[in-house]
Design a protein around this nucleic acid. Structure first.
Lengths: 205, 205
DNA sequence: TTTACTTTTAACAAGATTGTTAAAACACTA
DNA sequence: TAGTGTTTTAACAATCTTGTTAAAAGTAAA
């Protein structure tokens, strides 16, 4: 067994598959394109992963495994102020989303919702931490009590995810190049943080 | 020429095609599924629309034609306050998005960016109206001048679009049913409006 | 070098999918 | 009803796509 060679071949396939599945989606992806990109014979894809479905699930799971823990890393540093926690989270989240295509996950989950419901059970509890944390802040009168924590969750995620998913359309609409759009987004995490903090703070006036 | 029959057949095909293309995407859509849904022979699809590509373009264009004018209806009622204008726009926009799948457009534009760049030229100028309007408000000192109008645009669209596109994932994450999610979203347009108005108003403290 | 095992390839098979076509069914008018 | 043009269908053809397989090439140890 030549472990050296087989790992590098498998890895080359995974890299190629990730790229193709992410850009074309499951339905648009072709086994031929993946093997071409990996520089190997198409039959090898089946030798290593049996079928297109199995290979896709491997890629999808890896993407989910990268994504989900991020959503659960919420209640570390219990001494940290909620403002700082929010800032830190938003900044990390947006950086992460730049590198990892959220659209890929969303597109495939909508195609086949079982991908989410059957494969992320172990993370589902963690997802609730955010809402519970903000419920507690409200009870402790640290933030306004007339906002729904679920709405905060939705607003925060929308502000973080959509501008990166929709970059093509936004840069077209705003009549700027994608490079200029990137520059525009440089200051964006700061703006989102401040907006949310402003929204949650007790009103002084 | 039996106009009556042929219009209703063509219309039945378009209704079916819209449904299938929107839920499966171009790559996942099957001509057979469309004709089954329309209750006609598959060859008729080609009789009326020549090819899958042509049929798709018809559906895509119709979706774009429904969507784009909405983004351009901005500078009506010049007497109206900007707050009211914003509220009215957000409310209309969210209602519209509930009925018309934004995800469909986004998915296909990312698959083939020419769909956007070659087919929406006539609307591109209108898209800029929003940014220009807010630039003017800033010069007139009606709103804070330290916010980027492009950021306002991005934030507003993200808050309106993403919660509807991502409904499956959000309701799963929040551990509520899709029905409960709909109820949660009932008060959402109001919240988005207030958030944006709060963000744009001059700070009193 | 021979042997046993793993990796890779070329060729093939099966089925799915789009698109074409000739003829049947239909609708309307003379 | 006969004739003309339109609409619809069944059958077919061509191509694409996934998946299989038998054999070749490679590797490492006895």
């Amino acid at each position: 067994m030549n472990t050296e060679t087989s790992i590098s071949t498998e890895e080359a396939i995974l890299v190629a598959a990730r790229k193709v599945f992410e850009s074309k989606g499951f339905d648009g992806a072709r086994m031929q394109e993946i093997s071409d990109r990996a520089g190997i014979n198409r039959a090898l894809l089946h030798y290593y992963f049996r079928s297109k479905d199995k290979m896709f699930e491997r890629i999808f799971d890896e993407a989910l495994e990268r994504f989900m823990p991020l959503l659960s890393t919420w209640d570390q540093d219990p001494d940290e102020s909620w403002e700082l926690k929010l800032k830190r989270f938003i900044s990390t989240f947006i950086t992460f989303l730049k590198a990892n295509s959220m659209l890929f996950l969303l597109r495939e989950i909508i195609r086949k919702p079982e991908l989410l419901t059957s494969r992320s059970k172990k993370y589902r509890k963690g997802l609730n931490k955010f809402v519970l944390y903000f419920e507690r802040l409200k009870q402790e009168r640290q933030i306004r009590s007339d906002v729904d924590s679920k709405h905060i969750y939705i607003i925060m995620h929308s502000l973080c995810s959509f501008p990166l998913m929709n970059a093509i359309v936004f840069s077209y609409s705003l009549r700027i190049s994608t490079k200029e759009y990137d520059e525009l987004m440089a200051g964006y995490p700061e703006i989102v943080s401040n907006l949310l903090i402003q929204m949650l703070k007790h009103q002084n006036n």
